[in-house]
Design a protein around this nucleic acid. Structure first.
Ligand SMILES: [Mn+2]
Ligand SMILES: [Mn+2]
Ligand SMILES: [Zn+2]
Ligand SMILES: [Zn+2]
Lengths: 127, 127
DNA sequence: AATAATAATAGGAATCATTATTATTTATTG
DNA sequence: CAATAAATAATAATGATTCCTATTATTATT
C-alpha cells in the first residue's frame, strides 16, 4: 500500500479524538485542511485502516464508528446525549466463560451498555 | 392500537423461530401466507411490536434483527455461518459494576461475541 | 346490518449510510 | 524524466429503513 496525504490526514484525525467518530465526522474535519478530499476516500481509507489494524470499528446501532484505542474495551452509550464512553470490564471472564460453556472460539467481544451518563444526574435538580 | 391480520401474522412468525430474523426474512415468510402484504407493513409492525414490548431488537452489525425472547441475554455471532445463538452470562455483574464504577445508570446491555461456532470444529478434520 | 370515524395498509418514493465505478491524478521506481 | 499502477474525486448505485398518500379494513354507533 503506497502513501497518500489523505490517508495520513484521516489517521491523524481519528488518533486525535476520543469521540469515536463516524466517517462523516472525519470527513467534515478533513475537508477543513484539505477541501478537495472526497467522502468516498474517507470511507475507503477508514476501512483500510481498520483491516490493517490501525483503528478499530464500533457498531453504534446502524452506523459505524472508529476508535484509535485497540485495547479490548467496551462502551457506554448515553441514550440522552448519544455519547460513547470507554469502559474496561470483565473481558477475560467473558471470553473464558464462553469458551468453556459454549465451545465457541471467541475473536472479539462487542458490548454496548445503554443508559444515562452522569452529565444528566438528577442530583443537580434537587435545589 | 387496533387489530390487524398482518400484525398478528408478523408476531406469529417471530414467535415461531429462534433464528433472530430480519424484517426482510419475516416479509418473505409472511408473503407465503399473505401474498399482498407489503414490506413497509412488516417494518412498521415489527417496530411497533418492539416498542410494545412484544419482541426485542438486536443490532447485528448494520441490520436489525428481532427476538421473541425478552429475557436479558446476549448473542454469539459466528463469523463463518453468520448464525446468532443465545448465551446467558454475567448480566447482573456487568450492570452492578458499571453502576458502581462509572456512575452510569444502566438500561440495557447489548453484547455480541464474535467468533467461530462449534459447527466448524477443527476436530472433525483430524481424520 | 348499514353508516361513520379513523387506524392501518399497499405501493412507491425518499432518505441515509455505505460501496462501486471510472476517468484522472499522483506516488514510486528505474 | 517517463512508465506503471495505485489512489483519488466525482458521481452513480446499493441496501436497509422510513415516509407519503390514496385506498381499505376495523371498530363503534345507529
Ligand atoms: Mn473506545
Ligand atoms: Mn436471542
Ligand atoms: Zn449523556
Ligand atoms: Zn458457524
Amino acid at each position: 500500500m503506497r502513501y497518500s496525504r489523505q490517508r495520513e490526514l484521516i489517521l491523524e484525525i481519528v488518533m486525535g479524538t476520543d469521540s469515536h467518530p463516524t466517517a462523516d465526522w472525519v470527513f467534515q474535519q478533513a475537508r477543513k485542511q484539505m477541501p478537495e478530499i472526497s467522502l468516498g476516500t474517507v470511507y475507503r481509507n477508514l476501512k483500510r485502516l481498520a483491516t490493517n489494524g490501525n483503528v478499530r470499528t464500533i457498531n453504534d446501532g446502524t452506523v459505524v464508528r472508529y476508535d484509535w484505542d485497540q485495547e479490548p474495551h467496551d462502551h457506554l452509550k448515553c441514550k440522552i446525549c448519544g455519547d460513547l464512553m470507554d469502559v474496561h470490564l470483565l473481558e477475560e471472564d467473558i471470553r473464558k466463560s464462553v469458551r468453556e460453556k459454549y465451545n465457541f472460539e471467541v475473536d472479539d467481544v462487542e458490548m454496548t451498555i445503554i443508559g444515562t451518563c452522569n452529565k444528566h444526574n438528577t442530583i443537580m435538580e434537587e435545589k
